[in-house]
């Protein structure tokens, strides 16, 4: 049972990996590819690590650390890359504005 669950997680992660990495080959903007990489590298890798965690539960501390660092590093890296790619242009008034809260 645990084995099936573990394989499900790993295969789900692999599907995420392929789906999110495939747009890299296209001619879209860097930011669009960054969305795909967010799916592949953060969520897919987290699913794979969860699958590994189900296989070897006795090594949970390191794998939990791997999960945390995956989430934090990849997210921060996505922000840094998005920041570096876009130029600092002041947007005109035609921009749509939503008040989040």
């Amino acid at each position: 049972m645990i084995n099936i669950l573990s394989y499900t997680c790993i295969i789900l992660g692999l599907v995420f990996w392929y789906w999110g990495t495939w747009p890299l080959l296209g001619r879209r903007s860097v930011l669009y590819k960054l969305h795909g990489l967010s799916v592949a590298d953060t969520l897919g890798s987290m699913a794979i690590v969860v699958g590994l965690l189900l296989r070897i539960p006795h090594e949970w501390p390191l794998l939990v650390l791997a999960l945390i660092s995956l989430a934090i590093w990849n997210t921060v890296l996505g922000y840094v890359l998005a920041y570096c790619v876009t130029d600092d242009v002041t947007h005109d008034a035609g921009q749509e504005v939503s008040h989040g809260g």
């Binding site: 930011l31 969305h35 967010s38 989430a71 922000y79 998005a82 920041y83």
Partner: peptide, 10 residues
Amino acid sequence: TFTPKTIVQR
């Protein structure tokens, strides 16, 4: 940024 549909640029 964590959710795949949105990324904070700046």
